[in-house]
C-alpha cells in the first residue's frame, strides 16, 4: 500500500484544520488509512499552526522529522518553520503570502523559496489567496492549494479529484469552494 506523510501548515484562522480534514476524509472514503493530528486552543488565535496528516499504513499520528513527502502551506514563513519535517526531494505547495509577525523583520518571499529549494525541496509557490480573493472569498485559498496539490503532486496519485469535489459539495460555501478547487487544479496542470 502506498503511504504519504503530509504537513499542513499556516497561520491560525486560515482554514488549515479544514484543509487537513478534507484530505483525511477523502482518503478514508476511498479506503485508504488516514490519521490527521490537529492542535486546537492556544495553538490558534493567529499563531503558528501545523497539522500532521498520514495516509496509508501509518499507525502513529505524527510525521517524523525529515520524512514529510508533501507540505501544503498557507503562508511562507510557516513553510520555512516546519521545513525540517520534509525529506530531500519532498514537495512543497505554498501560498506566496507572508503574514509578518508583530515586531519582526522576516526574510522575503524570494529568500524563503530559494532556501527551501536549496534544501532539495520541489517548491510550488502559488498565488492562492489572490485567486480566492478574485472569487470573492479569501477563505477559499486553502482549497485552491488543495486543488493545486492534487493536480501537481504525489497527493494526486492517492486521492481522486472527484472524491474531494464530492466532499466540498457537501460542506459550507460549496459553490465557491468547488470553483476554487478547480482553479487550483488548473493552475497545477498549467505549470
Amino acid at each position: 500500500m502506498q503511504s504519504l506523510n503530509v504537513i499542513v501548515t499556516g497561520v491560525g484562522g486560515q482554514g488549515i484544520l479544514t484543509l487537513a480534514r478534507i484530505i483525511g476524509e477523502a482518503a478514508a472514503a476511498s479506503g485508504l488509512g488516514a490519521l490527521v493530528a490537529e492542535t486546537h486552543g492556544l495553538s490558534q488565535r493567529g499563531g503558528s499552526v501545523v497539522v500532521h496528516v498520514r495516509l496509508g499504513e501509518a499507525e502513529a499520528p505524527l510525521v517524523p522529522e525529515g520524512e514529510g513527502d508533501l507540505m501544503i502551506s498557507m503562508e511562507l514563513l510557516e513553510a520555512l518553520r516546519y521545513s525540517s519535517y520534509m525529506r530531500r526531494g519532498g514537495e512543497v505547495v505554498t501560498d506566496k503570502l507572508i503574514i509578518k509577525p508583530y515586531g519582526s523583520r522576516p526574510p522575503s518571499a524570494e529568500e524563503i523559496v530559494a532556501e527551501l529549494r536549496s534544501m532539495g525541496l520541489n517548491v510550488y509557490a502559488v498565488e492562492a489567496a489572490s485567486i480566492a480573493e478574485a472569487l470573492g472569498d479569501v477563505r477559499a485559498a486553502n482549497v485552491v492549494l488543495l486543488g493545486y496539490a492534487i493536480a501537481r503532486t504525489q497527493l494526486g496519485k492517492l486521492l481522486k479529484a472527484e472524491s474531494v469535489e464530492a466532499l466540498l459539495r457537501r460542506g459550507k460555501g460549496a459553490e465557491t469552494n468547488v470553483k476554487a478547487f478547480k482553479l487550483g487544479m488548473s493552475a497545477g496542470k498549467e505549470r
Binding site: V11, G12, L42, S43, Q44, R45, G46, G47, S48, P64, E65, G66, L77, E78, L80, R81, S83, S84, M86, R87, R88, P101, Y102, S104, R105, P106, P107, E111, I112, E115, L116, S118, M119, G120
Partner: peptide, 19 residues
C-alpha cells in the same frame, strides 16, 4: 540512520495573539 535538513534562515516566532 536519519537525514533531517534544517534551513539556514529562520522564521521569526509567531505566538498566538489577542484577535
Amino acid at each position: 540512520a536519519r537525514e533531517v535538513m534544517r534551513p539556514s534562515i529562520s522564521a521569526p516566532p509567531r505566538p498566538p495573539l489577542l484577535c
